[in-house]
């Protein structure tokens, strides 16, 4: 047998023996970004189609939590920075080649949009609510008048945000596990699925619950399809990609990924949703929470596993 032993004198903190530069902050930020994108997407989509009556929770209620999600996401992105005092440098340039830059700017656009959207629906959710200053009513009226424009911009930026959470990682050629274009769609669909799950949690009417559970079911189906393709692609590629896939096929991430993410986060909730839609009475709260749990773990596992996958030399 031919062997190669490589000894390196380098021992830089957070780089060796395995890259460990991103901890909980980035995956949390990716999850919250995807979830926010999902909620805003459905809100904008049904609002554009004029379904305010049918989907009040998805359009009015669920988006109320989005500003908080995005702010927590931004805080965790900020905590990830090592040179925090210079964070404003993100907003002095636009660098089209850098996904990080895209993300920072998309957040800069979608966060105010989510605030406006939440604000113009406050009175619908809490009928007794009153703005403390009368000029806020004028502002509100203005935005209600242009709600369609608002909804369209939200729809587009939500899709970019959802896609971006995957592209941030897939743009790194240096980490073979991440360097696959499947990651963008996978994280987008997973973000939409967690958004649909949140809408189930907020839904009051049977119609809303049923619609979002059907949507979630379809999205889980797409996710499973993308995951199969992710591994087919990696396994059909070069040695480094095969080794990246092996992290999940017998390697250290096998159990957590297949049991916690795929089984508990996707397959079991899908089965429960099918049973519920078919005829059984099961609270949809259960699959919704499982989907959210799977969504968090998917980001964490891919972020951590990707850092241990590398080129060989």
């Amino acid at each position: 047998m031919r062997e190669e032993i490589i000894t390196s004198g380098r021992m830089n903190d957070k780089i060796d023996p395995f890259l460990n530069i991103w901890h909980w902050e980035i995956p949390l930020y990716l999850f919250l970004g995807g979830l926010a994108a999902g909620i805003l997407f459905f809100a904008a989509f049904y609002s554009i189609r004029g379904k305010e009556k049918e989907f009040p929770s998805a359009i009015e209620k669920a988006p109320l939590i989005v500003p908080a999600l995005l702010i927590i996401g931004l805080i965790s992105l900020f905590l990830d920075l090592n040179h925090k005092l210079y964070f404003w440098r993100l907003y002095t340039t636009i660098r089209l080649e850098s996904p990080m830059s895209w993300g920072a700017w998309v957040l800069m656009i979608i966060t105010p949009l989510s605030f406006i959207w939440a604000a113009i629906h406050l009175k619908k959710v809490y009928p007794n609510f009153k703005w403390p200053f009368p000029w806020l009513d004028i502002v509100e009226e203005f935005f209600i008048k242009y709600k369609k424009v608002l909804a369209w911009s939200m729809l587009v930026s939500a899709l970019i945000l959802g896609m971006y959470t995957g592209i941030l990682l897939s743009a790194f050629n240096a980490r073979p596990l991440w360097n696959t274009s499947i990651l963008g769609p996978l994280f987008l669909v997973s973000g939409l699925s967690t958004g649909a799950a949140t809408n189930i949690l907020f839904a009051k009417t049977h119609l809303e619950k049923k619609t979002f559970s059907t949507i979630d079911l379809a999205l889980i189906g797409i996710e499973l399809f993308l995951i199969v393709h992710l591994f087919m692609g990696l396994l059909a590629s070069t040695q480094v990609q095969i080794e990246a896939a092996n992290l999940f096929l017998g390697g250290p991430y096998t159990a957590v990924f297949w049991v916690l993410v795929v089984l508990i986060g996707m397959i079991i909730p899908a089965v429960i949703e099918i049973l519920e839609l078919w005829k059984f009475k099961i609270p949809l709260l259960i699959p919704a929470i499982m989907v959210l749990f799977g969504g968090v773990l998917l980001r964490f596992i891919i972020t951590f596993a990707g850092q241990t996958s590398r080129w060989l030399y």
């Binding site: 530069i21 920075l81 210079y86 240096a174």
Partner: peptide, 25 residues
């Protein structure tokens, strides 16, 4: 003093030639 220490470049280098300086950049 332009670097925010986001770590993107560290992840992007196939040689792991970069490291986070204790000063943040």
């Amino acid at each position: 003093n332009e670097c925010i220490g986001c770590g993107a470049c560290i992840s992007s280098c196939p040689y792991d030639a970069r490291y986070p300086h204790p000063d943040g950049h």
